[in-house]
Design a protein around this nucleic acid. Structure first.
Lengths: 250, 250
DNA sequence: TTGCGGAATTAGTCCGACATAATATGCAAG
DNA sequence: CTTGCATATTATGTCGGACTAATTCCGCAA
């Protein structure tokens, strides 16, 4: 990192000495540092040394800074060792599936390779999840899917509401698996889904109507037909994948 | 939670006043609280209120306690709100794929349902990963797999070395996909693998030799045959799944 | 050149105080 | 008796300073 602007409480005045005591200071610092790390501005192995110095650069107290770093520690982004300083861990150790880490990764321009990798996870997990969902869904799950589908009908993916509905649909499918581990992945997959739709929008790809494909998935799951559900979901993702690849000039 | 023993620095003397300043105090507290939450001793919605009181019960300073809680915050286990206290979040919000969370979950008797769910993830991800690995593996990947396989030949799963080798093998397969997102899952899958082998051991299931099955996977990946790799891995997991199910009386 | 011991550095822990926000309480008005 | 606002309470957030402990680095001696 080269330069950094103060995040601290004294954003206007900027003079030290007055108390900030905001409620999100720590969170803001975590977001700031986390984004810097995930985006590559601070590289693995680099030191956030002299926490005191850093705290002063950010214009916050050591306490707030340290607690923010602890949050990053919990996500595997950094590691602190006495004397050696707090170092950014190699990418391999990052919890790339952590919702916040993903959010930070997508807060800037995400690395195309990373998006591709996340998509690969989707291709692997979602069809299988659709299959399980078809076997285990209950009334509530079906209602949730249909509700999301209805919202997708009312809004296009050009709107935030439309994207939300899209994510809600994919979420509902994972929920219907009744597998907590898979449900945990919804945050990761949601990030991929969201970015895809946004990306498509940005590149003005022809707005192919996604509703029929989603409806096929919902129907198959509601009907309790695992094979059809898996097939339909696979087709859905293949199409999204195709659009994305095309748009990315891959 | 009912009672709790002090973790603090004063484990022997127990009298306050002297400084501890150990190096892992915070980590010990995080481990203690994390395990308590994941194991269900502290239930979602329950308050870790009055951090001061808690800190005193654990016999540590507020600083160490707070930083430990921040690590849990980073894993989605708890959330702090002014006045409302620090509350354990619903299970849905936990990062169940976080390596430490998994470690805590398996430090006691893990919930059978959770193990099953984790296994389901394995069934979904690993065959697909084997396929990708067969397409992308390089020399180093193959060497790593063969090395792990050789170690598996030298030790049985009854030994820690054997289990390590087993995990290393599955790890190598994921590494060979060259997909960082999938690699991140290795911690989660490793937990399932490890527990399976340990469990089999514990129940004295007949020690079916796992090496040939693993070798088939390795050969297919080395040969660059995606279909065979996927099939071999699926067979491998099916067998483990079968053993586990049988042992769990499912 | 190598090994050892001290100095410097950096994170870890503790403490006490005050700020802030959300809740709980009590009082007054309808 | 109920409602609503002002106030007290409470728990977390932030601050700054002091001291500890573990490493690493470096200089000195064998």
């Amino acid at each position: 990192m080269t330069t950094q602007e103060p995040i601290g409480p004294h954003e206007e005045g900027g003079r030290r000495g007055e108390r900030s005591t905001g409620r999100r200071l720590r969170g803001a610092i975590a977001h700031y540092l986390g984004s810097a790390i995930v985006s590559g501005a601070i590289k693995p192995g680099e030191r956030l040394t002299t926490e005191v110095a850093n705290a002063e650069a950010l214009d916050v107290s050591r306490t707030a800074y340290r607690e923010a770093v602890r949050e990053l520690t919990g996500k595997g982004l950094v590691e602190s060792r006495t004397k050696a300083g707090t170092r950014v861990l190699p990418r391999k150790r990052w919890n790339l599936l952590d919702p916040e880490v993903l959010a930070w990764a997508f807060s800037g321009e995400p690395d195309p390779t990373f998006v591709r990798n996340l998509f690969e996870l989707r291709v692997i997990v979602e069809p299988a999840a659709a299959r399980l969902a078809a076997e285990r869904r209950d009334k509530d799950d079906i209602r949730e899917m249909r509700s999301a589908l209805a919202r997708m009908r009312r809004h296009t993916l050009a709107t935030e509401a439309g994207r939300l509905a899209d994510r809600a649909f994919h979420d509902a499918v994972l929920q219907a698996t009744h597998n907590d581990v898979l449900i945990t992945l919804s945050a990761s997959i949601g990030a991929a889904v969201n970015w895809t739709t946004q990306f498509k929008q940005r590149t003005r790809a022809l707005p192919r109507d996604p509703v029929p494909d989603h409806a096929r998935v919902a129907d198959a799951i509601a009907a309790g037909d695992p094979d059809a559900a898996e097939r339909a979901m696979r087709a859905l993702i293949d199409m999204a994948l195709d659009d994305t690849r095309h748009a990315m000039g891959d």
